[in-house]
Design a protein around this nucleic acid. Sequence first.
DNA 1: ATAAAATATTTGACAAAATCAAATAAATTA
DNA 2: TAATTTATTTGATTTTGTCAAATATTTTAT
Lengths: 308, 308
Amino acid sequence: MIFEERINAVRHFNRFITRQIGALQEGLLHSPYSLTESRILFEIANHSQITASDLTRQLGLDPGYLSRILTRLEEQGVIYKERSETDGRQRILKLTSEGKAVFSLLNQRSYDEVSEFLSELSDIEQQQLIHAMQTIEGILTKNRRFKFSGPYFLRQHEPGDMGWIVHKHGALYAKEYGWNEQFEALVAQIVADFINHYNPDKERCWIAEMNGDIVGSVMVVHESDAIAKLRLLLVDPQARGLGLGTHLVQECIRFAKRKEYQKLVLWTNSVLIAARHIYQKLGFTLVAEEKHHSFGHELIGETWELEL
Amino acid sequence: MIFEERINAVRHFNRFITRQIGALQEGLLHSPYSLTESRILFEIANHSQITASDLTRQLGLDPGYLSRILTRLEEQGVIYKERSETDGRQRILKLTSEGKAVFSLLNQRSYDEVSEFLSELSDIEQQQLIHAMQTIEGILTKNRRFKFSGPYFLRQHEPGDMGWIVHKHGALYAKEYGWNEQFEALVAQIVADFINHYNPDKERCWIAEMNGDIVGSVMVVHESDAIAKLRLLLVDPQARGLGLGTHLVQECIRFAKRKEYQKLVLWTNSVLIAARHIYQKLGFTLVAEEKHHSFGHELIGETWELEL
DNA sequence: ATAAAATATTTGACAAAATCAAATAAATTA
DNA sequence: TAATTTATTTGATTTTGTCAAATATTTTAT
């Protein structure tokens, strides 16, 4: 197939999917809520700490328009707003118990609709369809030209995120470096400490989300009044190459400066090449190395520091 | 992957593509025309005989809304309306020369945008993407649940369609039955005769379109004042199983009755099982058979008739 | 051949969805 | 401490879309 035909094939698909988009969401349509309202309810239901500005980024909506929709939903008694404790400008959005019932119905209808559609396809067709959808999503998100307003966005942690961090570290390092479950245990210990001693004024965790999936994390913890420690930097393979790792570390540096730490330190291992590059590029210096036998391998641990 | 995960994968893609849809059409967006207007201009530019009601079917728009958009486009001087000669209620929509310039610019911008996006992908990725898009389109259009307002629609022929009929007959019968180029020559002769002696009062050709592609055809020609002949019934493989063949033949029967023919006849071959089924189901009877050597094969020709 | 039904398009009256600019309050940076 | 940025809200307005009814023609039924 020559290049020109490929272009036309893509344009053809664009026209096709534009026509289908209403039909794809039909399950959400036959309800007193518009498609946009349903999308908003879906996001609120799936995040315990979401704010209006998160929604504008995630769904690409105008802030004023969104604000009015949220006010209406609040009047109808499906959501309520709570003043954020870490930032007085923000309002945390949550479903009321009535809202949960409403969402559950919408969600069920959409689920059933897709279920019914899928069940009419053969097993092979189902596999082909899902594989094709994942291929398209993968290729479109990797390519920045198609970003809406950044392919990913950062937020602070909320319940459930810590489990993701542990799971992802365990799975990813096992797969890429062959590390054993001792590593997952170490990560579990770190997040347990973070939760138990969390001090919002001095510590922070960032979660990166892309298309509704969590794709990255990092945290800054209090070591002493002068020293902050960066921990658990992770970028999911599906989000690599987007500058997400750098963005996360920059966020940590800005936070540490703002909170008047004098030094940001971190511990890593020499095999983690991609992470090392980021630290180096952002001005960290390697101050110590030591061999250790951990996670089933011979490793070289490294301590890096950044004067703020 | 278990069934439940598949459902969630599809729903995830639906949310993803809903977000992306604006970005996908970005090339059309930075212009004085809205996405809907651009889609309308695209359809008008690509059909020399299109009407407003065709557009409502193709694009799924409200007739009143569409009428107003068309009036506006006419006031702006990009399109004009012409009374249809075969149906006084219809207005044929066409681009003015200014409209052609406007469309050409829009079209070029959209083309360039996609071209630039594609060129940033590797050859493998391009192939994967296009294959995935075609897979999705194929599976979604075959499944009636996702239809907008019927997966296909019928219209009368317009310039360019006859070439498609010849090409498609040649390619399809060569592929499925191994017929040689003699067959394509015969088809070419038939369409040439149709065009040269076309009598709108007594003859008609229908073209079926689906997602912007032509996927089927059939024609009724005048044999004598009492006898009409059905010719060149064709259904593209991508549209099989939708009842299109039956629909096309029914259209022919209705037309022949209306025009007060007493009999509708047709000639076919015994190997064309699917077509035979349709004729039988709609009341045609087999009145004659004869062996003949044509198109490189030994065939049994059949004559079918329907009393009207 | 004529009356009734269906189709293509237009128009009027509205409602819903979305945009833009400006205002306010809190947090961050210089 | 002042200036800037960010999150949210509000007012004014435009765009987009829906629904029902009207008109002209064509098609179907009798």
